[in-house]
């Protein structure tokens, strides 16, 4: 791992809402080309970590850096960092007043001031890649949840981010749409994109992760490669957690 450059560094951070510590002395570093998957029970602070990495939440202690530069929502440098740190949320928030193509093109034009023709070409290519070329002039309300989420991913990709943060991007989707979105993530992983993924889809996590972070109650409880974590979890908490995703066969008491 050490040969690859460190992109994001989360250094002993503490995050409190009122008096409740949501994250306590949490550290994580993300290296170039790495896919880090964060799993853990609901409410353990997974979304909070991603939001902090993008400067959307203030922290009380510690520091987050992007390539050595401080990530802080209050600093002017944050917009430049966010250009490089793409984020996709659970609730696929496209801009409802803009068409699909406009959604994708807006930030590259407005924020990066890139050439319109070049941006449009790339946006169309990206839409084709996720199978949504024919929706380019549609409005978000005309798309299914899975389609909207694919557009949200494309919208983040159009900024040429160096890292992508995905927060349970399939949690709000109907089961049959989960696959089409996860396939996009898998193909990004194959390309070698650096990603931090929060997910409840364990078989997907196992397939995509280089490294798994298991979080519980705001602590890093266990960390390891995908096969280490899923096949040979070390801690009791991790075993319990993974067990919640399996079901024992119901043994019926036969009447005789």
């Amino acid at each position: 791992m050490s040969k690859k450059e460190e992109i994001i560094r989360v250094d002993h951070i503490t995050k409190r809402y009122d008096e409740n510590a949501v994250l306590d002395d949490f550290s994580l570093s993300v290296h170039e080309g790495e896919v880090v998957v964060i799993v853990g029970p609901s409410g353990c602070g997974k979304s909070t970590i991603l939001r902090i990495m993008n400067g959307l939440e203030p922290i009380q202690k510690g520091e987050v850096t992007y390539r050595g530069e401080k990530v802080d929502g209050k600093l002017g440098s944050i917009t430049r960092i966010r250009e490089k740190v793409g984020m996709v949320f659970q609730s696929y928030e496209l801009f409802p007043h803009k068409t699909i193509l406009q959604n994708v093109m807006l930030a590259p034009l407005l924020v990066q001031k890139r050439d319109r023709k070049e941006v449009k070409e790339e946006a169309l290519q990206l839409l084709a890649r996720v199978g949504l070329s024919e929706k380019k002039n549609a409005y978000p309300r005309q798309l299914s949840g899975g389609q909207k989420q694919r557009v949200a991913i494309v919208r983040a990709l159009a900024m040429h981010p160096e890292v992508l943060l995905f927060d349970e991007v399939t949690a709000a989707l109907d089961p049959e749409m989960v696959r089409e979105v996860l396939d996009v993530l898998l193909s990004l992983a194959k390309e070698g994109k650096t990603m931090v993924i929060v997910t409840h889809e364990m078989s997907f996590a196992k397939a995509v992760a280089d490294r798994v972070i298991f979080l519980d109650g705001g602590h890093l409880e266990e960390e390891g490669t995908a096969s280490e974590f899923f096949d040979h979890p070390k801690t009791e908490r991790a075993k319990q957690f993974l067990h919640t995703f399996t079901y024992d066969k119901v043994e019926r008491e036969e009447e005789r």
Partner: peptide, 24 residues
């Protein structure tokens, strides 16, 4: 989330307000 998705794309508060929030 409209504010946050816009911010996450690197827009400053001015851009978020004028291009995303105000039109809606």
């Amino acid at each position: 989330h409209q504010y946050e998705s816009a911010k996450a794309l690197g827009m400053n508060s001015f851009a978020v307000f004028f291009f995303i929030i105000l039109p809606q």
